[in-house]
Measured scan of single mutants.
Amino acid sequence: MSIQHFRVALIPFFAAFCLPVFAHPETLVKVKDAEDQLGARVGYIELDLNSGKILESFRPEERFPMMSTFKVLLCGAVLSRVDAGQEQLGRRIHYSQNDLVEYSPVTEKHLTDGMTVRELCSAAITMSDNTAANLLLTTIGGPKELTAFLHNMGDHVTRLDRWEPELNEAIPNDERDTTMPAAMATTLRKLLTGELLTLASRQQLIDWMEADKVAGPLLRSALPAGWFIADKSGAGERGSRGIIAALGPDGKPSRIVVIYTTGSQATMDERNRQIAEIGASLIKHW
């Protein structure tokens, strides 16, 4: 067993022997301040990774656009098919120029040779490549099948209805392509620590998230040296922004954090800054 596999296998073990965790309302004060600064709703939840206990939450059962955070769930569904012998990570998928959609920095470079399922998941999570996500959605049967996968996990809230990039439209009061912070946090925890996926697939999923290259201005910008984070960000229309993450000190994750916002007129930089400040408060009061 590799060191990384050992780390993920012992996530519940280490967490069980940690000192009790206590909620700190100071972080919620910052979440509410972010709402004021952005002029928009902000949803927040913080779960203990081992027990699933909610440590703090704000608007945990209000719907927010998922945006690209759905790509972690998508690759979880792909990995479940791999575990069941219905898919192979090494299978190569070929596609054409007509398949390319807006923001496809990886797939646009491989029109000639195609990409493997493993490479597509890596591109979808680490670079948020939209064509990679659409190609992977095709392998599982489309958005409705991802929703069905989530329902089978016990998540009857999260739903995907459309493809990239239309799913980022974020129309107010439109339930399409949305989740709730509580539902997303619980589902992410199941994917990373539950028995739904094999140990190898859980490790692969967290490795992809740990290698995320496009979430630097968010929670990662607030992390002290030595902290662990595996995350996936999302951005959408109407001032929408979000991030889902597993993080913790001492090089291992111990909490799940989900943050979503929508309806702001603020710039992307300002949305990023507010999420980073929430992260800084979380870490300060850990």
Rank of each mutant, 00 (worst) to 15 (best):
T107D: 01
W208Q: 03
L188I: 12
T193N: 15
N130K: 00
M1A: 01
K109M: 15
A170E: 06
I125N: 03
V31D: 01
V257L: 09
E237N: 14
V29W: 15
L111I: 13
K284R: 14
R92V: 15
I140F: 06
P165R: 07
G242Y: 00
L223S: 07
G52F: 05
E195D: 13
T27D: 04
D113F: 07
A124E: 01
E35H: 03
T116S: 10
E102R: 11
W227A: 03
S57T: 11
V117R: 01
N272V: 04
D129C: 01
L167A: 08
L160C: 11
T107H: 01
S57E: 13
C75T: 10
R118W: 15
P224Q: 06
I11V: 12
I171D: 13
Q203F: 08
G242I: 00
G216R: 08
A276L: 08
Y44R: 00
H285L: 09
V29R: 09
A225E: 14
T139D: 11
P181W: 00
V117C: 04
E56F: 04
R91C: 04
T116K: 06
E169Q: 13
R255V: 06
I244S: 03
C75D: 02
L167R: 02
A215C: 04
A132G: 05
D161C: 06
A222W: 06
R7V: 08
G251D: 11
T112Y: 15
A15K: 04
G76A: 14
P143V: 07
D177I: 01
T126V: 10
L19C: 15
A200P: 13
A211T: 10
W163S: 10
G242W: 00
Q204I: 10
K284A: 13
P105A: 06
L191M: 14
E175H: 14
D212E: 04
P172F: 09
L55N: 08
E35P: 01
R41E: 07
A182C: 13
R41K: 15
L197R: 05
D99N: 09
G141L: 04
I45G: 03
T261E: 06
I283W: 07
A185G: 14
I140W: 03
R118N: 15
R241P: 00
R59C: 04
R41M: 11
T116I: 06
I45D: 02
I244P: 00
Y103P: 07
M67E: 05
R7Q: 14
I93T: 05
H94E: 11
W208P: 00
I244T: 07
I283L: 10
S122V: 12
A40D: 05
G52Y: 05
T198Q: 11
K284T: 14
D48E: 12
T126H: 06
K144T: 13
L282F: 08
C75Q: 01
S2L: 14
E166T: 11
L135G: 02
G239W: 01
L47C: 09
I229E: 02
V72G: 03
L282K: 02
L137Y: 09
I244M: 08
Q265T: 14
L191K: 01
I243S: 02
L146P: 00
A222M: 12
N173K: 13
A185I: 03
